[in-house]
Design a binder for these strands. Structure first.
Lengths: 190, 190, 190, 190
DNA sequence: CATGAATGAGTTTTCATTCAT
DNA sequence: CATGAATGAAAACTCATTCAT
């Protein structure tokens, strides 16, 4: 059946796209990506029809990674605060270990070429978090704010906190904790 | 320090750069900018040596505008909360009236070509806000957080809030108020 | 002289090459041909060393088909006019039933990559028609014109007539007849 | 008013396009054209938005040249035969002096990318010849054939004749004359 | 100074051909 | 032999920047 399209190669391309985009922006030439992936220029296009499609795929990939990181080990049994803290930590820790991924995610978000279907798929992956919301609403733990707004607040604050953690690595742990406190105090009722 | 020929022309270029970048991203061709500004293609380069320099100048311009908007009518006499609320409202209102400027600001922030000197100049413009901090520290109004972190929190939360205001215009007023409450609760001591 | 594996596959490739070239021009990708032939991309190159060779082979194939169509049922016994009319009809009818083949033939003729050997082989196939000429010369049926010129006139006029037949299908029969009359009057002595 | 788009440069590009296309086919790279025209690669695109547009423009240009050549000195007063002969000679002589132009015209005709508007403009240029037809119809000089068919016959026969003239230059004069006779006998009543 | 044509390096993408499976 | 992924040399086109007018 000839050479099957290798998942490895696809991943290699996504990985170096992450690195190259982080360093040089989304306008980095595809040739930079393929050469970093040690792959022929043309090969990128056997895995992704266009550069835009690559960016969309990369976005989804990173988002799924991130959502995995946030959900893994999710403490269903604990209170809302603990659950949110788990999510916060998942987010922040993923960003700390995948700084390039996080940067690229930020760039893609302001980019403007995301397809609706990828946006939807990404939103779906984060849909799991709404279960937290359901409980929370029941417990009236939150201020009177729409859940999407609360999630968005968590995301931006976490992003921003990661910047500080990167800039002041020895204070990283402090920022991680205090960042969550800021968020929680802002969001919790009372 | 050069104010070459017509300040008007320079401003026209900056204005259409804002519009064009907002619509098409920073990778929009300079020709799109000059044609929108009804100016010759070459003229852009008599006012800005390179495209990168234009972007840097635009960044500074927008930041100064924004800081003006935030400071104008600043209530020196009122309490910390009121002062911060004034700043928040200034930010959010500027964003509401200058959506393109705000979008472009976001794009430039993730861009990667900002010169240190422009970053510094922009930071300087926001230095004024540190006076608030001094008082605030005196009053121990804030949690134990570095001021830059607090300012950054204000900025991201405001940015994000503006997104919601744009998306749900009839709830704009509500978001403006609740957004500040979220921020303040997150940041204020106790 | 090499009939590699399946004659079927070779023919499938030639057939879809005809179709694809007719639709998209000779610059159509080989991949379009193989996929239309339901054959692997690489297989084309086991039957034809290069794309140019495929085009040459296709040219010869179509020319042979055409000459067959023109010769089949050739009325050796009848007069020159009838014999030529038979040839004319054979040409025109083949073109009517194989519009794609005829179009492709035209494209290959202006192409510029035909090898001398294929040109020669094709000429040889049409050499049979010179027998008509021999008789004809004997009968002094033709004006004083070199036979190749006469054949060329027949071919172009037939090609052109087919265009009109395609464009005005309900007049097809008329064009077929009148076209031949034009040719014959142009070519016959007196 | 800066450097105005020079008609010269446009013509230089069209001229070398003619040469290059004649030698290498329409698939010749635009770079070959610009380098032959001693012009930067990009300059082609300031005069023609795309390669297709260049080909369309070239087609029109050549057609207009050809129609000029056919009409110049047109003998309005003479009989139909003489008028047609003038046209024939104009065609054939243009082809003899502009072999590349004629070849390129042939290639563009089988090409498939001509826009309707260019086809129309080209047809319009040849509309002048219909005056000949009007007279001719009055004089019942022609066989019962649609005029477009007659023009098409003239064109293909002339094209084909030019090929022979090129191949056998010392017989060129003979072919020119006999070619017309063939055409005229084919087309004239009686 | 303003203008916009000219430049050519750089970009994405295509495609004939090869070759590992 | 068949397969189709891999390759990388083009190719068309774009665009920041220069410079003749």
């Amino acid at each position: 059946m000839a050479k099957p399209k290798s998942e490895d190669k696809r991943n290699a391309i996504l990985a170096s796209a992450t690195k190259v985009f982080a360093e040089r922006g989304l306008s980095a030439p595809t040739a930079a990506i393929t050469s970093a992936a040690r792959v022929a220029e043309g090969s990128l296009f056997t895995y992704f029809k266009t550069k835009d499609e690559l960016i969309n795929a990369l976005y989804l990939e990173l988002k799924l990674e991130l959502s995995d990181a946030m959900m893994s080990g999710f403490p269903r049994k604990l209170g809302v605060r603990s659950r949110l803290e788990h999510v916060w930590n998942g987010y922040v820790d993923w960003g700390a270990t995948h700084p390039e991924g996080q940067q690229v995610l930020r760039q893609i978000q302001v980019w403007g070429g995301l397809t609706e279907s990828v946006k939807a798929a990404s939103a779906a992956a984060f849909g799991e978090f709404d279960r937290i919301a359901e409980d929370a609403a029941a417990q009236k733990a939150f201020r009177d704010l729409p859940m999407p707004y609360i999630w968005a607040a968590l995301a931006t604050l976490a992003d921003m906190t990661m910047d500080f953690m990167r800039r002041y690595p020895d204070q990283a742990g402090v920022y991680r904790v205090k960042g969550f406190e800021l968020f929680w105090s802002g969001v919790a009722r009372k």
